[in-house]
């Protein structure tokens, strides 16, 4: 789907802008009939999504860093939907949309707790979005990760279930790249797609 002004090639500036929707957001919008509206909302919502946080990063730390680009109205920590503990993302709502854009321009890729945080525009917070959407309750992206990450819950996938540990038995086999779900068959491709790397619920309803 064409994304109107977001797909245009611009010559107005001598370099690209950093306060534009990320590729992830663009890709999601393309698959979504109301994607263009969502994108337009996201530049006006005063809300940003912050990812790749350490589980141990507190709201106060986020305040300390993000208040440098504007007046913060509210911070919503992303929580594991079963354990209600931080699971590595949050939403920051500023007073004005400009401040949110400033944050995206100025603070993306900064380090917080020794991690490079990722920032993205966001169409606006709705209740329920504060929870991780992974099978385990955390973020899906963590379930796609096989490396050890101490500040994001270590191994999300238990050692025994990790692909590659029994490499001797499947020598030459292709690496499996689909969403890993312990002890479960993979689901239909469509759903797996929607789940992929998703911090936010995909509100695409087929046929709508």
């Amino acid at each position: 789907m064409s994304l109107a002004e977001f797909d245009e090639i611009h010559y107005e500036h001598s370099t690209s802008r950093l306060d534009v929707p990320s590729n992830y957001l663009m890709k999601k919008a393309r698959r979504n009939p109301s994607g263009l509206d969502e994108l337009r909302k996201s530049v006006k919502s005063a809300t940003i999504y912050v990812g790749n946080l350490s589980f141990y990063t507190s709201e106060e730390q986020i305040y300390e860093l993000f208040s440098k680009s504007g007046v913060i109205k509210r911070i919503i920590m992303g929580l594991d939907r079963f354990k209600f503990t931080p699971c590595g993302f949050c939403f920051v709502i500023y007073n004005t949309p400009e401040e949110a854009l400033n944050a995206v321009k100025y603070l993306s890729d900064m380090k917080l707790d020794d991690r490079n945080i990722t920032l993205d525009l966001d169409p606006g917070f709705e209740d329920g979005r504060q929870f991780g959407r992974g099978k385990s309750g955390g973020q899906v992206s963590d379930e796609l990760r096989f490396e050890y990450d101490a500040s994001r819950g270590g191994f999300t996938v238990p050692l025994v279930d990790r692909i590659g540990t029994n490499a001797t038995h499947n020598f030459g086999a292709r690496r499996v790249r689909d969403t890993y779900v312990p002890g479960q068959e993979h689901e239909a491709a469509e759903e797996e797609d929607a789940e992929e790397e998703g911090e936010e619920p995909d509100n695409y309803v087929p046929g709508q």
Partner: peptide, 12 residues
């Protein structure tokens, strides 16, 4: 001229 964040992160 801009929020401090800009200059600080530019230097970083």
């Amino acid at each position: 001229s801009h929020p401090f964040a800009y200059f600080y992160t530019l230097l970083v």
